[in-house]
């Protein structure tokens, strides 16, 4: 077992992250502690292996096209937002016009008018309910927040 107080220094020593003073203190400790010396040797072996390990570089075209991919997504996102806002605004406008025409049209029976209005109201309630539920779960998604 490594001495607990020297665990951090052991990692720093291994990764060459210690100040001259910390290094001297750790080396003094090492001189008298066979457990830490043995553990350091084990970590050195592991580091030698992991230092040789590398991930495969992707083809050059991935880097050449990278910004293009990001840019397209940004542009597409803006396009979708504009499309959605315009679509919702148009749907609401047309909906109101249709309801207005329906109410004003003397040729349609009152029962049919009530039925159609109830259908539209039901659809609107369902839409709002689903939207609210989505927002509720989105707010509770633990991984959506970006910690600052």
């Amino acid at each position: 077992m490594v001495c607990d107080d020297y665990k951090d220094l052991l990692m720093g020593y291994l990764d060459n992250e210690l100040s001259a003073e910390q290094r001297r203190r750790f080396e003094e400790h090492l001189a008298g502690c066979s457990d830490c010396t043995a553990e350091l040797e084990e970590f050195k072996k592991l580091k030698a292996i992991t230092d040789e390990f590398s991930l495969a570089e992707p083809e050059d075209r991935i880097w050449q096209d990278y910004w293009g991919g990001v840019y397209n997504r940004i542009e597409r996102g803006i396009g979708w937002i504009m499309f959605s806002v315009a679509g919702i605004a148009l749907a609401i406008y047309c909906g109101f016009k249709a309801i207005e025409e329906l109410i004003k049209d003397p040729g349609i029976e009152i029962t049919l008018k009530i039925g159609l209005l109830a259908l539209i109201a039901g659809l609107a309630i369902l839409f709002v309910s689903i939207l609210r539920e989505r927002l509720y779960f989105w707010k509770r998604d633990r991984y959506k927040d970006v910690r600052m």
């Binding site: 292996i49 040789e52 390990f53 590398s54 991930l55 495969a56 570089e57």
Partner: peptide, 10 residues
Amino acid sequence: DAVADKDELK
């Protein structure tokens, strides 16, 4: 496929 070297240890 993500590993650069194809040897077993890597």
